[in-house]
């Protein structure tokens, strides 16, 4: 089940988007998200959607793959839509008992839905086209200037790196423990919610024990390999902005400018 979620997954490829510097991609994604909240008319959303469409086309990630990632949040989407459409006061279009749909509410609901869909598609493009480890590297380097005000940039990135490494190991471990408990007659399928939750305890306890064991071993192994935090540490993969990165930044600026001018005009 956990494996079905495409949100946050990496889609291997060799497109320009894949090869862009992760820092550029992170900033572009942030800008795209901010811009989605500035826009308040259809033309603006259309421009954003077209740009996102172009990026998706260039990246060669199948659209169906991206849309599949939206499935788990469909319920949230419908919920916010309903909330918006019924809860906003204004010019009434339709009424039935206490339920009413207003023109303002409809507009807001549609905009919010478009916003959420574009936001999720945009941010999943970041993870789909960037190797997880480049992403952590990018985050570390973007946060580096904030070290002066006490943001533990290196530690955050190291934690994410280790999480990426050990999530599959812990999943395997969970699987092993579940099978072992099932072999002893444990039942995870039937019963009400409380019974099911109770059945999880014999999994969680050994899982915690094994996670602590891993943490201890790993800390020792890292120390033995001369790990002493982020200071004076070099990296094998250097991050240097290339021609394509400057072009991307330029396009990003043009995109932002267009959106800002557009919202002012309409």
């Amino acid at each position: 089940m956990i494996r079905d979620i495409t949100l946050g997954q990496y889609f291997p490829g060799d497109s320009v988007i894949h090869r862009l510097d992760p820092r550029v991609k992170i900033i572009a994604t942030l800008m795209f998200i901010i811009e989605l909240f500035i826009v308040d008319n259809f033309i603006g959303f259309a421009i954003a959607a077209i740009c996102l469409g172009l990026v998706i086309a260039v990246s060669k990630v199948p659209l169906s793959f991206i849309l599949r990632g939206l499935k788990p949040i469909l319920i949230i989407l419908m919920f916010t839509f309903a909330l918006n459409i019924f809860m906003v006061d204004g010019r009434i279009l339709w009424q039935w008992g206490f339920l009413k749909i207003t023109a303002e509410g409809l507009r807001l609901a549609v905009f919010m839905a478009i916003r959420l869909v574009l936001l999720l598609m945009g941010s999943s493009m970041l993870t789909l086209c960037t190797r997880p480890l480049s992403l952590t590297d990018g985050i570390e380097r973007l946060l580096a200037p904030l070290k002066k005000i006490g943001v533990p940039a290196h530690e955050i990135a190291m934690m994410m790196t280790i999480a990426l490494r050990f999530i599959p190991t812990l999943l395997e471990e969970t699987d092993k423990i579940m099978k072992a408990q099932q072999a002893r007659g444990a039942d995870f399928e039937t019963g009400n919610l409380i019974q099911k939750a109770k059945a999880l305890i014999p999994i969680l306890v050994p899982l915690f024990v094994s996670a602590f064991r891993i943490a201890q071993d790993l800390a020792m192994a890292m120390e033995a390999r001369c790990y002493r935090g982020g200071d004076n540490r070099t990296r094998m993969h250097e991050m240097k902005l290339k021609g394509r990165d400057y072009v991307a930044v330029l396009l990003l600026i043009v995109f932002l400018a267009v959106i800002i001018i557009e919202t002012r005009l309409f």
Binding site: R131, P132, L133, T161, I162, L164, R165, L218, A221, M222, R225, C226, Y227, R228, R233, T234, R235, M236, H237
Partner: peptide
Amino acid sequence: VSAIVEDDVAFGPEN
């Protein structure tokens, strides 16, 4: 330490 083999081998020299 790392989710990619060559990055893991690089960990010590990087330190």
